[in-house]
């Protein structure tokens, strides 16, 4: 029987709060803030400085709710935005969409880290491993499900939340533009290029997952091995190796390799990646070496899981 559907569900039952509730509430909060900015404009005094810059000129405007109504303010802002070159609008919107996604991707990085750290450790600590191991689920599937959850499923949930915030933002602006004579599609939706932006985010997170794979494998290995404080092992062992490397070999190759794979350099690299770029990013020597190291680490984690007992 295919056990994967229920094994994956299990991970979400256990971690519903950090996998689903956290990003959904964050998205809701962002949408609330955007709505509030429009609806509260007349009620609460809002003063916003706007600057539009290009090579030739720099314009500066101030929107102040004391001097004008909400409608007038929107008119001013839209008029200026419409006056920009197509390329500038694209660039500006890209920055805004990207910026809205960043908090989610930051949270995602932390959530995955702590999830993997506890994934093969917590059940040994609370002895529930005796229950899980009393069922016919192989150690390979147990560990691979954790990896699949961390690299594909949880990022997917976070990306959906980012997409919801993007959509909400554009919809709110569109609603605000009702009654003004703007071609909102050509001015806003077209340069925003939502689909392309989302595909680029998918590419970014997929390449990031693959890039981080040796680090994830390392966390899983520690999680399967540690008898207490896995965090100390995850950080401590690389520090020891780095110190030895510095003393004995006088170089920093390991430290550099480890830190770049342990940090979210791809998603925060502001790269404009598309799905078509994936093969060229994946088929590099560094990436292939990483994947091989990851496979070894995960295999070790599976082996340790087989021997694991309550602590």
């Amino acid at each position: 029987m295919n056990q994967y559907p229920v094994l994956l569900k299990r991970e979400f039952w256990e971690h519903r709060n950090i996998f689903v509730v956290l990003p959904v509430i964050t998205a809701g909060f962002f949408i609330f803030l955007m709505l509030a900015a429009f609806t509260a404009f007349d009620v609460v005094g809002i003063k916003a400085d706007m600057s539009f810059q290009n090579e030739e000129s720099s314009e500066h405007y101030t929107i102040d709710s004391d001097d004008m109504t909400m409608d007038e303010a929107i008119g001013v802002a839209f008029a200026r935005f419409a006056g920009l070159a197509e390329e500038q609008r694209e660039q500006g919107l890209y920055q805004v969409l990207y910026g809205l996604g960043m908090p989610f991707l930051g949270m995602l990085t932390l959530v995955i880290f702590f999830y993997l750290m506890g994934s093969l450790y917590e059940d040994r600590k609370d002895r529930s491993i005796l229950f899980w191991k009393s069922l016919p689920v192989s150690d390979i599937n147990t560990v691979l499900v954790k990896l699949l959850t961390a690299t594909i499923l949880v990022p997917a949930v976070y990306l959906v939340c980012i997409a919801a915030v993007h959509l909400a933002m554009l919809l709110i602006i569109t609603l605000a533009a009702i009654g003004h004579d703007f071609e909102i599609w050509a001015m806003l939706w077209q340069p925003a290029n939502l689909i392309a932006h989302w595909l680029s985010l998918i590419a970014l997170t997929l390449v990031q997952s693959l890039w981080s794979l040796p680090f994830f494998g390392w966390i899983l290995l520690v999680s399967a091995y540690a008898r207490s404080v896995p965090l100390a092992w995850i950080i401590g062992i690389p520090i020891v190796i780095a110190a030895l490397e510095g003393m004995l070999l006088q170089d920093r190759d390991f430290v550099q390799w480890f830190t770049t794979h342990a940090s979210p350099v791809i998603v925060f690299g502001r790269e404009n990646l598309s799905l078509a770029d994936i093969p060229s990013r994946v088929l590099t020597i560094d990436m292939l070496v990483s994947v091989v190291i990851a496979i070894l680490l995960v295999a070790a984690a599976i082996w340790l899981r087989g021997k694991a007992d309550e602590i």
Partner: peptide, 14 residues
């Protein structure tokens, strides 16, 4: 099938 001594069901499970 086995039941280890009480309390090994994960506490978060419904």
């Amino acid at each position: 099938c086995f039941i280890a001594d009480v309390g090994v069901l994960p506490r978060w499970l419904k």
